[in-house]
Design a protein around this nucleic acid. Structure first.
Length: 396
RNA sequence: GGAGGGCUCGCAUAGUGGCCUAGUGCGGCGGUCUUGAAAACCGCUAUGAGGGGUGACUCUCAUCGUGGGUUCGAAUCCCACGCCCUCCGCCA
Protein backbone atom coordinates (compact mmCIF):
# COMPACT_ATOMS: atom_id res chain seq x y z
CA UNK A 1 0.00 0.00 0.00
CA UNK A 2 2.85 2.37 0.88
CA UNK A 3 4.52 1.52 -2.40
CA UNK A 4 1.32 2.41 -4.21
CA UNK A 5 1.01 5.79 -2.50
CA UNK A 6 4.65 6.61 -3.19
CA UNK A 7 4.28 5.63 -6.83
CA UNK A 8 1.18 7.78 -7.15
CA UNK A 9 2.94 10.74 -5.54
CA UNK A 10 5.88 10.36 -7.93
CA UNK A 11 3.55 10.17 -10.91
CA UNK A 12 1.67 13.29 -9.84
CA UNK A 13 4.90 15.29 -9.56
CA UNK A 14 6.15 14.06 -12.94
CA UNK A 15 2.85 14.97 -14.61
CA UNK A 16 2.84 18.46 -13.08
CA UNK A 17 6.42 19.07 -14.24
CA UNK A 18 5.67 17.89 -17.78
CA UNK A 19 2.44 19.90 -17.90
CA UNK A 20 4.12 23.20 -17.08
CA UNK A 21 6.92 22.57 -19.61
CA UNK A 22 4.35 21.73 -22.27
CA UNK A 23 2.51 24.97 -21.50
CA UNK A 24 5.73 26.91 -21.92
CA UNK A 25 6.48 25.19 -25.22
CA UNK A 26 2.99 25.90 -26.47
CA UNK A 27 3.31 29.64 -25.74
CA UNK A 28 6.72 29.62 -27.38
CA UNK A 29 5.30 27.94 -30.48
CA UNK A 30 2.77 30.72 -30.89
CA UNK A 31 5.51 33.30 -30.64
CA UNK A 32 7.51 31.58 -33.39
CA UNK A 33 4.46 31.35 -35.58
CA UNK A 34 3.93 35.09 -35.36
CA UNK A 35 7.60 36.00 -35.73
CA UNK A 36 8.98 37.32 -39.02
CA UNK A 37 11.32 35.08 -41.07
CA UNK A 38 14.35 37.17 -39.99
CA UNK A 39 13.60 36.78 -36.30
CA UNK A 40 13.07 33.04 -36.40
CA UNK A 41 16.58 31.54 -36.48
CA UNK A 42 17.45 33.19 -33.15
CA UNK A 43 14.28 31.85 -31.54
CA UNK A 44 14.81 28.33 -32.80
CA UNK A 45 17.86 27.84 -30.57
CA UNK A 46 15.70 28.25 -27.50
CA UNK A 47 13.07 26.05 -29.17
CA UNK A 48 15.48 23.15 -29.42
CA UNK A 49 16.37 23.41 -25.75
CA UNK A 50 12.72 23.50 -24.82
CA UNK A 51 11.96 20.49 -26.98
CA UNK A 52 14.68 18.48 -25.27
CA UNK A 53 13.40 19.48 -21.83
CA UNK A 54 9.85 18.52 -22.73
CA UNK A 55 10.99 15.20 -24.11
CA UNK A 56 12.91 14.40 -20.95
CA UNK A 57 9.98 15.41 -18.74
CA UNK A 58 7.62 13.26 -20.78
CA UNK A 59 9.94 10.30 -20.48
CA UNK A 60 9.97 10.72 -16.71
CA UNK A 61 6.18 10.98 -16.73
CA UNK A 62 5.82 7.78 -18.77
CA UNK A 63 8.19 6.01 -16.42
CA UNK A 64 6.30 7.14 -13.34
CA UNK A 65 2.98 6.12 -14.87
CA UNK A 66 4.33 2.72 -15.79
CA UNK A 67 5.64 2.21 -12.27
CA UNK A 68 2.21 3.04 -10.83
CA UNK A 69 0.52 0.66 -13.28
CA UNK A 70 2.92 -2.11 -12.26
CA UNK A 71 2.27 -1.47 -8.60
CA UNK A 72 -1.46 -1.61 -9.30
CA UNK A 73 -1.36 -4.80 -11.34
CA UNK A 74 0.60 -6.58 -8.66
CA UNK A 75 -2.23 -6.14 -6.18
CA UNK A 76 -5.16 -8.58 -6.27
CA UNK A 77 -8.68 -7.39 -5.56
CA UNK A 78 -9.60 -6.29 -2.06
CA UNK A 79 -11.48 -9.03 -0.22
CA UNK A 80 -14.95 -8.23 1.13
CA UNK A 81 -15.37 -8.32 4.93
CA UNK A 82 -16.78 -11.61 6.14
CA UNK A 83 -14.97 -13.82 3.64
CA UNK A 84 -13.42 -16.73 5.53
CA UNK A 85 -9.64 -16.47 6.02
CA UNK A 86 -7.28 -19.19 4.88
CA UNK A 87 -6.75 -21.41 1.85
CA UNK A 88 -8.57 -23.98 -0.26
CA UNK A 89 -9.83 -26.03 2.70
CA UNK A 90 -10.95 -23.12 4.86
CA UNK A 91 -14.27 -22.40 3.16
CA UNK A 92 -17.51 -21.96 5.09
CA UNK A 93 -20.53 -24.08 4.19
CA UNK A 94 -23.44 -21.64 3.88
CA UNK A 95 -26.20 -24.14 3.23
CA UNK A 96 -26.91 -27.65 2.08
CA UNK A 97 -29.80 -28.25 -0.28
CA UNK A 98 -31.66 -31.56 -0.40
CA UNK A 99 -30.51 -34.88 1.01
CA UNK A 100 -27.90 -37.32 -0.15
CA UNK A 101 -29.63 -39.73 -2.52
CA UNK A 102 -29.86 -43.32 -1.29
CA UNK A 103 -28.98 -46.21 -3.63
CA UNK A 104 -29.90 -49.86 -3.10
CA UNK A 105 -26.84 -50.83 -5.15
CA UNK A 106 -23.25 -49.69 -5.36
CA UNK A 107 -23.32 -46.49 -7.50
CA UNK A 108 -20.75 -46.49 -10.30
CA UNK A 109 -18.35 -43.69 -11.14
CA UNK A 110 -19.62 -41.32 -13.86
CA UNK A 111 -16.96 -42.72 -16.20
CA UNK A 112 -18.47 -46.21 -16.00
CA UNK A 113 -22.03 -44.91 -16.37
CA UNK A 114 -21.06 -42.72 -19.29
CA UNK A 115 -19.46 -45.60 -21.15
CA UNK A 116 -22.36 -47.90 -20.31
CA UNK A 117 -24.93 -45.54 -21.88
CA UNK A 118 -22.60 -44.34 -24.65
CA UNK A 119 -22.60 -40.70 -23.58
CA UNK A 120 -18.95 -40.03 -24.32
CA UNK A 121 -15.78 -41.57 -25.70
CA UNK A 122 -12.58 -40.51 -23.94
CA UNK A 123 -10.33 -43.14 -25.56
CA UNK A 124 -10.95 -41.69 -29.00
CA UNK A 125 -10.77 -38.19 -27.53
CA UNK A 126 -7.23 -39.00 -26.40
CA UNK A 127 -6.37 -40.58 -29.74
CA UNK A 128 -7.43 -37.50 -31.66
CA UNK A 129 -6.58 -34.65 -29.28
CA UNK A 130 -4.70 -36.04 -26.29
CA UNK A 131 -5.53 -36.64 -22.66
CA UNK A 132 -8.45 -34.73 -21.11
CA UNK A 133 -10.26 -34.59 -24.45
CA UNK A 134 -13.42 -36.48 -25.33
CA UNK A 135 -16.18 -36.91 -27.84
CA UNK A 136 -19.71 -36.50 -26.55
CA UNK A 137 -21.68 -39.19 -28.31
CA UNK A 138 -25.37 -40.12 -28.69
CA UNK A 139 -27.21 -39.25 -25.48
CA UNK A 140 -24.20 -37.25 -24.24
CA UNK A 141 -24.31 -35.00 -27.29
CA UNK A 142 -28.07 -34.58 -26.90
CA UNK A 143 -27.60 -33.77 -23.20
CA UNK A 144 -25.22 -30.95 -24.09
CA UNK A 145 -27.81 -29.22 -26.23
CA UNK A 146 -30.58 -29.89 -23.73
CA UNK A 147 -28.57 -28.40 -20.87
CA UNK A 148 -27.54 -25.36 -22.88
CA UNK A 149 -31.11 -24.77 -24.05
CA UNK A 150 -32.52 -25.17 -20.53
CA UNK A 151 -29.93 -22.72 -19.23
CA UNK A 152 -30.55 -20.19 -21.98
CA UNK A 153 -34.31 -20.46 -21.50
CA UNK A 154 -33.97 -19.78 -17.77
CA UNK A 155 -31.59 -16.87 -18.32
CA UNK A 156 -33.74 -15.30 -21.00
CA UNK A 157 -36.85 -15.60 -18.82
CA UNK A 158 -34.92 -13.83 -16.03
CA UNK A 159 -34.12 -10.91 -18.33
CA UNK A 160 -30.59 -11.81 -19.40
CA UNK A 161 -29.50 -10.96 -22.94
CA UNK A 162 -28.45 -14.23 -24.57
CA UNK A 163 -25.01 -14.05 -26.19
CA UNK A 164 -22.76 -16.38 -28.14
CA UNK A 165 -19.28 -15.10 -27.30
CA UNK A 166 -15.89 -15.49 -28.98
CA UNK A 167 -13.53 -18.05 -27.44
CA UNK A 168 -10.41 -16.30 -28.73
CA UNK A 169 -9.58 -12.89 -27.29
CA UNK A 170 -6.85 -10.28 -27.37
CA UNK A 171 -4.34 -9.82 -24.55
CA UNK A 172 -6.15 -6.73 -23.23
CA UNK A 173 -9.29 -8.70 -22.41
CA UNK A 174 -7.30 -11.50 -20.75
CA UNK A 175 -5.16 -9.08 -18.76
CA UNK A 176 -8.13 -6.88 -17.84
CA UNK A 177 -10.15 -9.71 -16.38
CA UNK A 178 -7.21 -10.78 -14.24
CA UNK A 179 -6.44 -14.13 -15.85
CA UNK A 180 -2.81 -13.33 -16.63
CA UNK A 181 -2.08 -12.90 -12.93
CA UNK A 182 -2.11 -15.92 -10.64
CA UNK A 183 -3.78 -18.12 -13.25
CA UNK A 184 -1.50 -17.35 -16.23
CA UNK A 185 -0.32 -20.97 -16.34
CA UNK A 186 -3.89 -22.11 -16.88
CA UNK A 187 -4.33 -20.22 -20.11
CA UNK A 188 -3.74 -21.32 -23.70
CA UNK A 189 -1.97 -18.73 -25.83
CA UNK A 190 -1.68 -18.69 -29.63
CA UNK A 191 1.71 -17.14 -30.17
CA UNK A 192 1.49 -16.56 -33.86
CA UNK A 193 -1.60 -14.39 -33.57
CA UNK A 194 -1.13 -13.21 -29.99
CA UNK A 195 -4.61 -14.42 -29.08
CA UNK A 196 -5.72 -16.27 -25.97
CA UNK A 197 -8.22 -19.09 -25.67
CA UNK A 198 -10.67 -18.14 -22.94
CA UNK A 199 -11.19 -20.35 -19.91
CA UNK A 200 -14.66 -18.83 -19.52
CA UNK A 201 -16.82 -16.48 -21.56
CA UNK A 202 -16.53 -14.09 -18.62
CA UNK A 203 -13.46 -12.76 -20.43
CA UNK A 204 -15.32 -11.88 -23.61
CA UNK A 205 -18.39 -10.62 -21.71
CA UNK A 206 -16.26 -8.27 -19.60
CA UNK A 207 -14.46 -7.06 -22.70
CA UNK A 208 -17.82 -6.44 -24.36
CA UNK A 209 -18.31 -3.08 -22.63
CA UNK A 210 -14.62 -2.18 -22.21
CA UNK A 211 -13.78 1.47 -22.95
CA UNK A 212 -17.47 2.35 -22.67
CA UNK A 213 -19.69 4.37 -20.39
CA UNK A 214 -22.79 2.22 -19.96
CA UNK A 215 -26.22 3.26 -18.76
CA UNK A 216 -27.13 1.51 -15.50
CA UNK A 217 -30.01 3.75 -14.47
CA UNK A 218 -32.50 0.96 -15.22
CA UNK A 219 -30.55 -1.49 -13.06
CA UNK A 220 -27.86 -4.09 -13.75
CA UNK A 221 -27.05 -5.19 -17.31
CA UNK A 222 -27.09 -8.96 -17.55
CA UNK A 223 -25.74 -11.24 -20.25
CA UNK A 224 -25.86 -15.01 -20.58
CA UNK A 225 -22.89 -16.02 -22.70
CA UNK A 226 -22.35 -19.36 -24.34
CA UNK A 227 -18.86 -20.30 -25.49
CA UNK A 228 -16.27 -23.02 -25.58
CA UNK A 229 -13.83 -22.84 -22.66
CA UNK A 230 -10.23 -24.00 -22.62
CA UNK A 231 -8.04 -24.78 -19.64
CA UNK A 232 -4.51 -26.13 -19.58
CA UNK A 233 -5.08 -27.77 -16.19
CA UNK A 234 -1.42 -27.22 -15.40
CA UNK A 235 -0.63 -28.53 -11.95
CA UNK A 236 -3.54 -30.95 -11.86
CA UNK A 237 -1.68 -33.90 -13.35
CA UNK A 238 -3.08 -37.12 -12.01
CA UNK A 239 -6.18 -35.43 -10.60
CA UNK A 240 -9.59 -36.44 -11.97
CA UNK A 241 -7.99 -37.99 -15.02
CA UNK A 242 -10.88 -40.27 -15.90
CA UNK A 243 -14.06 -39.35 -17.72
CA UNK A 244 -15.16 -35.82 -18.48
CA UNK A 245 -14.98 -34.28 -15.01
CA UNK A 246 -11.81 -32.26 -15.61
CA UNK A 247 -11.05 -31.59 -19.27
CA UNK A 248 -9.09 -29.16 -21.41
CA UNK A 249 -12.14 -28.03 -23.31
CA UNK A 250 -15.85 -27.77 -22.51
CA UNK A 251 -18.82 -25.60 -23.34
CA UNK A 252 -20.43 -23.34 -20.78
CA UNK A 253 -23.25 -20.87 -20.27
CA UNK A 254 -22.04 -18.06 -18.05
CA UNK A 255 -24.04 -15.28 -16.42
CA UNK A 256 -22.39 -11.88 -16.42
CA UNK A 257 -23.62 -8.72 -14.74
CA UNK A 258 -22.61 -5.07 -14.74
CA UNK A 259 -23.97 -2.94 -11.88
CA UNK A 260 -23.14 0.02 -9.63
CA UNK A 261 -20.67 -1.06 -6.90
CA UNK A 262 -23.14 -0.44 -4.08
CA UNK A 263 -25.50 -3.00 -5.61
CA UNK A 264 -22.84 -5.65 -6.20
CA UNK A 265 -23.37 -7.71 -3.06
CA UNK A 266 -27.10 -8.12 -3.61
CA UNK A 267 -26.49 -8.85 -7.29
CA UNK A 268 -24.03 -11.53 -6.23
CA UNK A 269 -26.74 -13.21 -4.18
CA UNK A 270 -29.12 -13.03 -7.14
CA UNK A 271 -26.59 -14.79 -9.37
CA UNK A 272 -26.22 -17.44 -6.68
CA UNK A 273 -30.01 -17.82 -6.55
CA UNK A 274 -30.15 -18.40 -10.33
CA UNK A 275 -27.41 -21.03 -10.06
CA UNK A 276 -29.37 -22.80 -7.33
CA UNK A 277 -32.55 -22.61 -9.39
CA UNK A 278 -30.78 -24.40 -12.22
CA UNK A 279 -29.30 -27.11 -9.99
CA UNK A 280 -32.72 -27.62 -8.41
CA UNK A 281 -34.15 -28.25 -11.88
CA UNK A 282 -31.54 -30.96 -12.35
CA UNK A 283 -32.67 -32.54 -9.04
CA UNK A 284 -29.18 -32.55 -7.60
CA UNK A 285 -28.18 -32.52 -3.94
CA UNK A 286 -25.58 -29.84 -3.32
CA UNK A 287 -24.10 -27.40 -0.84
CA UNK A 288 -23.11 -23.76 -1.16
CA UNK A 289 -19.72 -22.65 0.11
CA UNK A 290 -18.18 -19.25 0.78
CA UNK A 291 -14.67 -19.65 -0.64
CA UNK A 292 -11.78 -18.65 1.63
CA UNK A 293 -9.70 -15.59 0.87
CA UNK A 294 -6.63 -17.56 -0.17
CA UNK A 295 -8.57 -19.42 -2.86
CA UNK A 296 -10.12 -16.42 -4.62
CA UNK A 297 -7.77 -15.72 -7.50
CA UNK A 298 -6.78 -12.18 -8.34
CA UNK A 299 -10.04 -10.64 -9.52
CA UNK A 300 -12.72 -11.86 -7.08
CA UNK A 301 -13.58 -10.08 -3.83
CA UNK A 302 -15.89 -12.94 -2.86
CA UNK A 303 -16.80 -16.24 -4.43
CA UNK A 304 -19.60 -18.70 -3.77
CA UNK A 305 -19.37 -22.21 -5.18
CA UNK A 306 -22.18 -24.74 -5.54
CA UNK A 307 -20.86 -28.24 -5.02
CA UNK A 308 -22.92 -31.24 -6.04
CA UNK A 309 -22.78 -34.57 -4.30
CA UNK A 310 -21.15 -37.31 -6.42
CA UNK A 311 -22.17 -40.63 -4.86
CA UNK A 312 -19.35 -42.80 -6.25
CA UNK A 313 -16.71 -40.26 -5.26
CA UNK A 314 -18.57 -39.75 -1.98
CA UNK A 315 -17.64 -36.07 -2.20
CA UNK A 316 -19.10 -32.67 -2.97
CA UNK A 317 -17.55 -31.33 -6.18
CA UNK A 318 -17.79 -27.86 -7.67
CA UNK A 319 -20.40 -27.51 -10.41
CA UNK A 320 -20.88 -23.76 -10.45
CA UNK A 321 -19.06 -20.73 -9.12
CA UNK A 322 -20.06 -17.10 -8.85
CA UNK A 323 -17.63 -14.23 -8.24
CA UNK A 324 -18.09 -10.62 -7.26
CA UNK A 325 -15.17 -8.79 -8.88
CA UNK A 326 -16.32 -5.40 -7.57
CA UNK A 327 -14.54 -2.71 -9.63
CA UNK A 328 -11.33 -4.71 -10.20
CA UNK A 329 -12.03 -5.67 -13.82
CA UNK A 330 -13.86 -2.43 -14.62
CA UNK A 331 -10.89 -0.31 -13.59
CA UNK A 332 -8.57 -2.29 -15.84
CA UNK A 333 -10.97 -2.41 -18.78
CA UNK A 334 -12.35 1.15 -18.42
CA UNK A 335 -15.94 0.03 -17.94
CA UNK A 336 -17.81 2.95 -16.41
CA UNK A 337 -21.31 4.15 -15.65
CA UNK A 338 -22.62 7.56 -14.57
CA UNK A 339 -23.38 7.89 -10.88
CA UNK A 340 -26.25 10.03 -9.55
CA UNK A 341 -24.08 13.16 -10.07
CA UNK A 342 -23.47 12.22 -13.69
CA UNK A 343 -19.82 11.51 -13.01
CA UNK A 344 -18.26 8.45 -14.70
CA UNK A 345 -17.27 5.77 -12.18
CA UNK A 346 -15.99 2.23 -12.55
CA UNK A 347 -18.86 -0.28 -12.51
CA UNK A 348 -18.86 -3.56 -10.62
CA UNK A 349 -18.71 -6.79 -12.61
CA UNK A 350 -19.96 -10.18 -11.47
CA UNK A 351 -20.06 -13.58 -13.07
CA UNK A 352 -21.60 -16.94 -12.33
CA UNK A 353 -21.81 -20.33 -13.98
CA UNK A 354 -25.22 -21.39 -15.18
CA UNK A 355 -24.02 -24.64 -16.65
CA UNK A 356 -20.56 -26.05 -17.33
CA UNK A 357 -21.68 -28.79 -19.67
CA UNK A 358 -19.35 -31.76 -19.23
CA UNK A 359 -19.08 -31.59 -15.47
CA UNK A 360 -22.84 -31.28 -15.21
CA UNK A 361 -23.26 -34.31 -17.46
CA UNK A 362 -20.87 -36.18 -15.17
CA UNK A 363 -23.03 -35.25 -12.18
CA UNK A 364 -26.28 -36.22 -13.89
CA UNK A 365 -24.93 -39.61 -14.98
CA UNK A 366 -23.51 -40.44 -11.56
CA UNK A 367 -26.40 -39.14 -9.46
CA UNK A 368 -29.35 -40.33 -11.54
CA UNK A 369 -28.05 -43.78 -12.44
CA UNK A 370 -30.44 -46.68 -11.81
CA UNK A 371 -29.92 -50.27 -10.69
CA UNK A 372 -30.64 -51.53 -14.21
CA UNK A 373 -27.81 -49.42 -15.68
CA UNK A 374 -30.05 -46.74 -17.13
CA UNK A 375 -29.99 -43.04 -16.20
CA UNK A 376 -33.10 -41.12 -15.23
CA UNK A 377 -33.60 -37.72 -16.89
CA UNK A 378 -34.82 -34.97 -14.53
CA UNK A 379 -38.29 -33.63 -15.40
CA UNK A 380 -37.12 -30.14 -16.36
CA UNK A 381 -34.71 -31.47 -18.96
CA UNK A 382 -37.17 -33.77 -20.74
CA UNK A 383 -38.81 -31.12 -22.96
CA UNK A 384 -35.35 -30.42 -24.36
CA UNK A 385 -34.78 -34.11 -25.14
CA UNK A 386 -37.94 -34.75 -27.07
CA UNK A 387 -39.66 -36.06 -23.96
CA UNK A 388 -37.02 -38.72 -23.21
CA UNK A 389 -37.28 -39.75 -19.54
CA UNK A 390 -34.32 -42.11 -19.32
CA UNK A 391 -31.14 -43.08 -21.10
CA UNK A 392 -30.88 -46.82 -21.66
CA UNK A 393 -27.58 -48.71 -21.58
CA UNK A 394 -26.08 -48.90 -25.06
CA UNK A 395 -25.97 -52.27 -26.78
CA UNK A 396 -22.74 -54.34 -26.93
C1' G B 1 -3.50 -14.25 -49.11
C1' G B 2 -3.42 -9.73 -52.89
C1' A B 3 -4.95 -4.53 -54.38
C1' G B 4 -7.21 0.02 -53.05
C1' G B 5 -10.07 3.54 -49.78
C1' G B 6 -10.97 5.12 -44.88
C1' C B 7 -10.88 6.10 -39.10
C1' U B 8 -11.70 13.94 -36.53
C1' C B 9 -15.36 16.00 -29.45
C1' G B 10 -23.30 11.43 -29.80
C1' C B 11 -24.22 11.43 -35.62
C1' A B 12 -22.61 13.86 -40.25
C1' U B 13 -18.74 16.64 -42.04
C1' A B 14 -14.47 20.84 -42.61
C1' G B 15 -9.58 21.02 -41.77
C1' U B 16 -2.46 19.16 -46.45
C1' G B 17 3.03 22.13 -40.92
C1' G B 18 2.11 27.77 -36.70
C1' C B 19 -4.31 32.31 -37.08
C1' C B 20 -6.79 24.60 -34.44
C1' U B 21 -7.49 27.37 -27.84
C1' A B 22 -10.36 21.64 -33.73
C1' G B 23 -14.87 25.05 -37.39
C1' U B 24 -19.95 23.96 -39.26
C1' G B 25 -24.65 21.27 -39.54
C1' C B 26 -27.83 17.74 -37.05
C1' G B 27 -29.26 15.66 -32.53
C1' G B 28 -29.51 16.31 -27.18
C1' C B 29 -29.89 19.47 -22.61
C1' G B 30 -31.06 24.30 -20.31
C1' G B 31 -33.11 29.23 -20.96
C1' U B 32 -36.01 33.51 -23.31
C1' C B 33 -40.77 34.10 -25.56
C1' U B 34 -45.82 31.36 -25.08
C1' U B 35 -52.07 29.57 -21.74
C1' G B 36 -49.29 25.13 -23.54
C1' A B 37 -46.48 23.56 -27.65
C1' A B 38 -43.96 24.51 -32.30
C1' A B 39 -40.86 28.10 -34.52
C1' A B 40 -37.22 31.72 -33.56
C1' C B 41 -33.25 33.37 -30.59
C1' C B 42 -29.38 32.63 -26.60
C1' G B 43 -26.22 29.31 -23.91
C1' C B 44 -24.26 24.45 -22.98
C1' U B 45 -22.73 19.72 -25.17
C1' A B 46 -16.63 14.19 -24.56
C1' U B 47 -12.79 11.62 -21.64
C1' G B 48 -8.50 11.49 -18.45
C1' A B 49 -4.83 13.75 -15.09
C1' G B 50 -3.85 17.87 -11.95
C1' G B 51 -4.83 22.78 -9.42
C1' G B 52 -8.27 26.70 -7.11
C1' G B 53 -13.20 27.76 -4.48
C1' U B 54 -18.22 25.76 0.87
C1' G B 55 -20.74 25.51 -3.70
C1' A B 56 -23.38 26.47 -8.89
C1' C B 57 -18.23 26.52 -10.95
C1' U B 58 -13.27 27.64 -12.72
C1' C B 59 -8.11 27.13 -14.54
C1' U B 60 -3.89 24.06 -16.66
C1' C B 61 -2.23 19.84 -19.44
C1' A B 62 -3.34 15.64 -22.50
C1' U B 63 -6.55 13.05 -26.11
C1' C B 64 -8.21 13.96 -33.99
C1' G B 65 -8.06 4.86 -34.22
C1' U B 66 -3.24 3.05 -31.20
C1' G B 67 2.04 3.30 -30.61
C1' G B 68 6.64 5.22 -32.38
C1' G B 69 9.37 8.88 -35.46
C1' U B 70 10.60 13.67 -38.22
C1' U B 71 10.24 19.04 -36.63
C1' C B 72 11.39 24.72 -32.60
C1' G B 73 6.13 23.33 -33.66
C1' A B 74 1.93 17.60 -36.19
C1' A B 75 -5.24 16.32 -36.94
C1' U B 76 -1.83 17.57 -41.15
C1' C B 77 4.58 14.48 -43.02
C1' C B 78 7.05 9.25 -42.21
C1' C B 79 6.90 4.02 -40.02
C1' A B 80 4.40 0.01 -37.52
C1' C B 81 -0.05 -1.94 -35.68
C1' G B 82 -5.56 -2.20 -34.87
C1' C B 83 -10.29 -1.73 -36.91
C1' C B 84 -13.94 -0.61 -40.91
C1' C B 85 -15.26 -0.48 -46.24
C1' U B 86 -14.64 -1.97 -51.68
C1' C B 87 -12.68 -5.45 -55.20
C1' C B 88 -9.92 -10.19 -56.36
C1' G B 89 -8.63 -15.16 -54.55
C1' C B 90 -9.98 -19.02 -51.07
C1' C B 91 -13.65 -20.97 -47.85
C1' A B 92 -18.18 -23.37 -43.80
Amino acid sequence: MDRLLAADEARRAAVAAADSLRAEQKAFGRKVGQASPEERPALLERGKELAAEVKAAEARQAEAEEALQQAHRAIPNVIIDGVPAGGEDDFTVLETIGDKPVYDFEPADHTIVGERVGAFDTARGAKVSGSRFYFLTGPGALLEFALVNLAMAQATAAGFTPVVAPALVRPEAMEGTGFLGAHAEEVYHLERDDLYLVGTSEVALAGYHSDEIIDLTDGPRRYAGYSACFRREAGSYGKDTRGVFRVHWFDKVEMFSYCPPEQAEEEHLRLLAWEKEFLDKLELHYRVIDTAAGDLGSSAARKYDCEAWFPAQDRYRELTSTSNCTTFQARRLAIRYRDSNGKPQPAATLNGTLVAVTRTIAALLEVHQQADGSVRIPEALRPYLGGMDRIEPAKL
